[in-house]
């Protein structure tokens, strides 16, 4: 099971890298979102995918899945959620002010 998820993570990271290297801002942002999915999937996999009860104490299981990676992911999800929100608003403002969403055109020095 771990092997399958790791291959899936690899595919997600490849897709994310490809998207981040593209020209359009919105594709880059989609790439970062996919990269965060890959990272979160990797945390849950690295914690081990052994079968066990959900980490709630009162359902009569003897073994539980590791609760720590789930807490880490929850923290990481809200953080990347907030950063993605900022990034989207920033992209909108940049589009309104500069009139382009092409990263190739967002370059050059201004007073040299």
């Amino acid at each position: 099971m771990e092997t399958l998820i790791i291959i899936l993570t690899g595919v997600l990271v490849s897709v994310a890298t490809y998207l981040i290297l593209s020209k359009s801002v919105i594709r880059v942002i989609l790439g970062t979102a996919i990269l965060s999915h890959a990272a979160h999937l990797l945390i849950i996999t690295m914690g081990g995918l052994k079968t066990g009860g959900v980490p709630i104490l009162d359902n009569g299981h003897d073994t539980f899945t590791d609760a720590l990676p789930q807490a880490l992911i929850l923290t990481s999800i809200v953080i990347s959620f907030a950063v993605t929100a900022i990034l989207l608003v920033l992209a909108l403002r940049t589009y309104q002010e500069l009139g382009t969403d092409n990263l190739e055109k967002l370059r050059g020095f201004y007073d040299e």
Binding site: A38, A39, M46, G47, I86, L87
Partner: peptide, 23 residues
């Protein structure tokens, strides 16, 4: 926009590092 993107990328890499180290 460039500053945000590079930092977001390296943060995601940081999470990945922690995942490996935890494993």
């Amino acid at each position: 926009i460039k500053y945000l993107l590079i930092n977001l990328f390296s943060s995601m890499l940081f999470v990945t590092c922690i995942a490996f180290l935890y494993a």
